[in-house]
Design a protein around this nucleic acid. Sequence first.
DNA 1: CAACTATATGACGATAACGACATAAAGTCA
DNA 2: TGACTTTATGTCGTTATCGTCATATAGTTG
Lengths: 176, 176
Amino acid sequence: MPRPRVLPYIILGLLNKNGMMSGKDMISEFKTDISEFWTVSHSQLYPELQRMVDEKQIKVAEDVEVKDRKVINYVIEAKGQETLKRWLAEPITLKNDELTSLKLYCISDQRAPILQQILKQCLALHQQKVVHLKARKELLFGDELAIKANYGHYLILSRAIERESDYVNWLQSKIN
Amino acid sequence: MPRPRVLPYIILGLLNKNGMMSGKDMISEFKTDISEFWTVSHSQLYPELQRMVDEKQIKVAEDVEVKDRKVINYVIEAKGQETLKRWLAEPITLKNDELTSLKLYCISDQRAPILQQILKQCLALHQQKVVHLKARKELLFGDELAIKANYGHYLILSRAIERESDYVNWLQSKIN
DNA sequence: CAACTATATGACGATAACGACATAAAGTCA
DNA sequence: TGACTTTATGTCGTTATCGTCATATAGTTG
């Protein structure tokens, strides 16, 4: 199996946050808000919307008022809200941590319990990472000679430690 | 077309750095050194090695001495070194910046000119990013009400600014 | 040596990614 | 209204991904 799709969850997240949206609305919000972390092409989006309607995760919003019969608006269904909730509640692991920013983006309420849960799990994960990376640096680059012989490796390992440490600090500052 | 492969370049980078390696050697180095940034399964690696032999990027190292006829060792060819060099020299953009750490990993010599070139391009890119992100935060989250209404979005945008600023500082400290 | 296990390599099927092309409704301007 | 452009949605072919199964050699233990 190829890598799992995240698109359906992001669609649910947007619809849950914003109410009614069309495909074009989603595309533009993807681009302006989260393109740093994740992108899709429209040729993935439209088939996905159809699939999700079939699965009753979302439905077409039938506005009698709307004159524009070209644009198709969608709203989230109860089943979709449950799917989203389960996705947000999935334990954060090394494998899925790249999705954490996207999950946070889907949570608008500052006091949602799931938000602090995510931040705490994320903190634990990255604290472990710092420990692991520091041990590795110690092991590999104890002497100056090793640094000179593998400078690129040394650079990215050093950077990883700083990056992760900075992230840990930030997470701690946002956890109650 | 699907997303382009990076595997061939990483293979060239490893062989260029380490000399003779087998598929299994590569797998284990992938895992220990760069699995933070990028992963492959062995079912991608072995066909790729064959393809690259066909393309004369690498060749099978015919050791008469070697007793172990199960393991296949490879070495880089002149064409492969050129391919690698061209890859490392590609301008860094928003699209390919996720590969920058992998590129650095392939450069062992601290005084290689390409290393500083990469760091400088990377710096320029992320400085722009900081400017852009700060402008967006200003625009979207000028008032406290907007923060409360979209807290997850506020969080990831704030984090992005800190992350990028930290990265910019680090890059500056490594540039001559 | 025989039998079993571990390991390095190889092959395949299902599906996700994504550029390119297609279509039809809406907008624009004469 | 007619011709042209723009845009929102839809479709397709190629190729990358990745779990799973397969194979053959090396190692190990009796």
